[in-house]
């Protein structure tokens, strides 16, 4: 089935190849090499990513979205074509240097990263007599500049790790939950019976709130979860999230539009649109949160109000989710 699909895509691949060859006749990329690269990507990321049978139309959609010129250049560079390397150097070196300088702490680090990336791109490892170039991992699904940004970012993390052996990868790249386990409890020890009852009640509401919010979040669709995580954990600003979905074909954008039953006029996604998506997600979390408390704990509306009120007070004291980091939710 996969072979038949790939065979069916051959004429489209040939047409793309002919166009690339006409644009860059001196890159020396053979049609076999070009087709093999695209077929590998189709097999891995299109056919392999789907649990359902893939249609020829889906393959053609993928081929139409491929950055063919960038892929053609990267294959030529992987093969060691001088002309392609020169073009690559002319077109992208300045950009790479700027990205590296922006990310690195020092000019020396930036230069080291650029040098390392160039070496990786050329490839010094030889397997079965063939030099392995980093370019061979570029699929053409995004732009080559976007890919280079990612390669440089990783290279800088590696460089940083080399100087900080004691840090784990996660410690290096995130501070999720920092401080949560050290949060201090605001309430004072109680000594009266009434206070004890109140403490028990509060604890009951608190536990119910924690599990209800966890369940509400878990019930969201993945794109809604990711939006909330980008906004609240990664601290992406609205305009940064808008940038992420700027591409009209962006699946995230499509999912939110379908969810909110809206269609934009195309072009730029505005911050107000992202805000609306977030508000919809909050409304959904609240709905799920309430229904969870009713279903699992048989809470009344008044009790739900109390849960929210106590949780809001606890947030100020920083003790609502204390200890959550050590538990798996």
């Amino acid at each position: 089935m996969d072979d038949a699909l790939l065979k069916e895509s051959a004429p489209r691949i040939t047409a793309i190849y002919e166009q690339c060859k006409a644009d860059q006749p001196n890159f020396g990329v053979s049609e076999e090499c070009f087709a093999a690269s695209l077929q590998k990507t189709i097999t891995k990321y299109v056919i392999g990513a789907s649990s359902e049978p893939v249609t020829p139309q889906q393959i053609n959609d993928f081929l139409d979205s491929v950055q063919a010129g960038d892929l053609f250049m990267s294959l030529a560079c992987a093969n060691g074509n001088e002309r392609a390397w020169w073009e690559f150097d002319q077109q992208h070196r300045s950009y790479m240097e700027r990205v590296a300088r922006h990310l690195a702490k020092t000019e020396a680090d930036a230069q080291e990263v650029i040098d390392t990336v160039y070496v990786e791109l050329y490839g010094t490892r030889v397997v079965d007599g063939e030099r392995i170039s980093k370019f061979s991992t570029y699929s053409g699904r995004g732009s080559i500049r976007g890919w280079l940004r990612t390669v440089i970012w990783h290279s800088l993390v590696d460089l940083h790790r080399a100087g900080h052996d004691e840090l784990s990868l996660d410690e290096m790249t995130e501070t999720i939950g920092e401080g949560a386990t050290h949060a201090s409890f605001a309430e004072q020890p109680s000594d009266g019976e009434a206070e004890m009852v109140e403490t028990i009640t509060r604890e009951r509401y608190r536990n119910a709130t924690v599990s209800a919010i966890a369940n509400a979040f878990a019930s969201l669709e993945d794109h809604e979860k990711l939006l909330l995580l980008y906004y609240h954990v990664e601290n992406l600003k609205l305009r940064e999230i808008a940038r992420l979905v700027e591409n009209e074909a962006s699946p995230l954008r499509g999912w939110f539009q379908r969810k909110t039953q809206t269609r934009d006029a195309g072009g730029r996604t505005h911050e107000s649109t992202v805000m609306r998506w977030l508000e919809k997600s909050y409304a959904r979390v609240l709905e799920l949160f309430k229904s969870g408390l009713i279903k699992v704990h048989s809470f009344t509306e008044t009790e739900i109000d109390q849960c929210v009120e106590i949780a809001t007070q606890d947030l100020t004291a920083g003790n609502l989710f204390a200890g959550l980091k050590s538990r798996q939710i």
Partner: peptide
């Protein structure tokens, strides 16, 4: 909650650079 959670099904592997780059560009 999001800043305190510890996902129970945290994956062991990571996305490759090609996928990360293409996702970021929405392609």
């Amino acid at each position: 909650y999001l800043n305190s959670r510890n996902p129970s099904n945290a994956p062991t592997g990571h996305l490759d650079q090609d996928t990360l780059a293409a996702f970021t560009e929405g392609t």
